[in-house]
Computed example of a mutant assay.
Amino acid sequence: MKAEPAAPAGDGQRPDSRRTSGPPGARPRPGGLWRGRHLAALVGCLALVVLLVLISLGVGARGIPLGTVGRVLLHDDGSPEAIIVRQLRMPRTALAVVVGAALALAGVVMQAITRNPLAEPGIVGVNAGASFAVVIAIAAFHVTGVSGYIWFAFAGAVLAALVVYTLTSGATRSHHHTRLVLAGAALSASLGACTGIITMFNTTAFDSYRFWVVGALENRGTEALTAAAPFVVAGTLIALALGPSLNALALGDETGAALGLRVTWVRAAGFLSIMLLCGAATAAAGPIGFVGLVV
């Protein structure tokens, strides 16, 4: 029989135990390091958002120092600066945060469903549907205010997304992604042509429509934020609930189905989340295109 090798000289510990902290035999846990970096990145992003919010409240036709912005936020002293920050710029900034979060979350869900890193909300015809509905509201119903646009824009965005989903619902798994892109592009082109025809022959509709179509946050007060917030909250809850399912879907439709995932239901719920988030954001701030490419 062969003799067992002698233990190495030294402190009597196993060689691998000297490379790890904790009790003997403990193995390194890379997941803890990843979670730590993830938490640090999240805290850094939140701090950046807070800084940008303060800058947004201070920037405008009348510049306000950040110290003054913080003071009037904590205490309303009735000064002109407090009126500007609290009544004029706060609704605009809050709407910007909500719209940005909604578009970002919708983009994540869209990229998870299509497995395309450049996928964006406009790919399902949301912008084109909202624009066409706004033109119809101006030309046929003589709606001129932003508060009236928001409901027509939301309805148009949701209907356009439903049409795209209907056109792609019968596709096989291997052709679903291609048909989604083609259906969205075809619907956007068709609705864009209809919008152009209406604005070409109706100068009143064109004059009102051109200020909405560029996408802006001016003159969007608390009414636009109040109207969009419930839909954004509902879409956010659906998207967060779909997180584990989207992770499984990222492995592929076949793998996800093998893991017990109901792919059709996950896609339908993801589309519902996208419709709510994109429809509300587009209705409140106007169409914002190529978000995925910018990111």
Rank of each mutant, 00 (worst) to 15 (best):
A280P: 06
L103F: 14
V266I: 05
T168Y: 00
G44L: 14
A9T: 05
A171F: 01
V164K: 05
S79H: 12
L33Q: 12
A205E: 07
R19K: 09
G32L: 15
A241M: 15
Y209V: 02
R173K: 04
P5T: 14
A216G: 15
L74N: 12
R179K: 13
L46N: 06
A128I: 06
P65N: 08
G63L: 12
V126C: 11
V124W: 02
G292N: 14
G36R: 14
A102S: 11
G100S: 00
A239C: 08
L118M: 13
A106G: 15
C45F: 12
R37G: 13
A257K: 11
A257W: 01
A268C: 01
I113Y: 06
G235I: 00
G286I: 01
I138F: 03
R18Y: 13
G122Y: 00
R262D: 15
L180H: 03
K2P: 15
L74P: 03
T203C: 02
T255S: 13
F201Y: 09
D16H: 11
A227K: 06
L118C: 04
I136F: 11
G289F: 03
A119K: 00
G25F: 04
Q111A: 12
Y149Q: 02
A82D: 13
T226N: 09
A104F: 01
V266E: 09
L276F: 11
A157N: 03
H177I: 10
G122P: 02
R267N: 01
T282A: 13
L277N: 10
G107Q: 10
A189C: 12
D253N: 05
A6L: 14
G32I: 10
R92D: 06
P23S: 11
A248W: 02
V295E: 11
L118Y: 09
A285W: 00
M1W: 06
A285K: 00
V43N: 11
L251V: 10
F206S: 12
T282G: 12
G129F: 08
A128W: 03
A119C: 00
R19L: 15
I197D: 05
I238C: 05
V214Y: 06
V50G: 12
D207Q: 07
V108C: 15
I55P: 07
M200W: 15
L118P: 08
A40H: 02
I84D: 07
N219L: 07
S17I: 00
R262A: 10
S169L: 07
V158Y: 10
A285Y: 03
A186E: 04
G184K: 02
A7G: 07
R18I: 10
E218V: 01
P15T: 05
A227V: 06
A171R: 07
A3N: 14
R267V: 07
A102Y: 10
V134M: 01
L167S: 05
V181I: 15
G184P: 10
L187S: 09
G221E: 04
G36S: 06
G170P: 00
T204D: 15
I197V: 12
V124M: 12
A130T: 02
A193C: 03
A3Y: 06
L42P: 05
A205G: 08
L52W: 08
A283F: 07
P230W: 09
D77P: 14
A157F: 14
A269H: 02
